[in-house]
Design a protein around this nucleic acid. Structure first.
Length: 213
DNA sequence: GCGACAG
DNA sequence: ATCTTGTCGC
């Protein structure tokens, strides 16, 4: 995947086709054993590099069990709808070095609340065969009715108002997690921040690493 | 054609 | 996402 300059435009069409081809493989059912260990991944950037940080917590107390990070070269610029191809590879690498694999992984970005049902969380889950949930800070596609996200008359996720005064966040299943469980699991991970704790911690960790560079 | 557009 | 100080508020 080396998409730059004149190759970008045609490359984009190929990547969209790839998403349409892989989307049918996304499983939206509860297929995980427990929810005792929850992970979160987030990225920070500098030059053309991506820092992907992962934090694994126990769900009861949200205490850190392990945290790791990797730095990889970005192979694609940010294109709305194709975020999985830009940040996905980095997330896959950091997940691989985790010694404590989480029961469910929270990913910053959407899962199936995506125009082609193939957001970052779904891509990462499929490639790693790992239950994932997408948690985004903004809506990408569709509309919200009664705290639910709809795309083409189909429910794809939820809008969640965390703290009063703070903007809502958007939850959607990524892979091997049902619509209902995606919301329940995320809700059980909040402490005193707008984002669920594993993601809040991963975000802080990624930026901490960035500061040392 | 115009506007929207995860991070 | 990133460039960036102080500032309002819990």
């Amino acid at each position: 995947m080396f998409l730059v300059g004149s190759f970008l435009k045609e490359g984009i069409e190929e990547l969209k086709k790839e998403q349409i081809k892989l989307a049918p493989r996304i499983i939206i059912k509860d297929e995980f054993y427990e929810t005792n260990v929850i992970g979160g991944v987030d990225q920070a950037f500098f030059d053309n590099k991506i820092i992907s940080a992962a934090v694994v917590c126990d769900r009861k107390r949200m205490e850190i069990r392990e945290r790791e990070y990797v730095i990889v070269e970005a192979q694609l610029e940010y294109v709305p709808g194709l975020l999985c191809f830009r940040e996905g590879p980095a997330i896959i690498e950091v997940f691989k070095i985790l010694k404590t694999k989480p029961d469910v992984l929270l990913v910053e970005g959407h899962g199936i609340a995506h125009m082609r049902k193939f957001g970052l969380a779904s891509y990462v889950g499929l490639m790693l065969n790992q239950p994932t949930i997408g948690v985004a800070k903004n809506l990408l596609e569709g509309r919200t009715i009664d705290n639910a996200i709809y795309i083409n008359e189909e429910k794809r996720g939820y809008e969640l108002k965390t703290r009063k005064g703070a903007k809502a966040i958007y939850i959607s299943p990524g892979y091997r997690v049902s619509l209902k469980s995606s919301l329940g699991i995320v809700k059980s991970c909040f402490r005193e921040h707008r984002l669920p704790e594993p993601l809040y911690l991963a975000h802080r960790y990624a930026n901490k690493i960035k500061r040392t560079m």
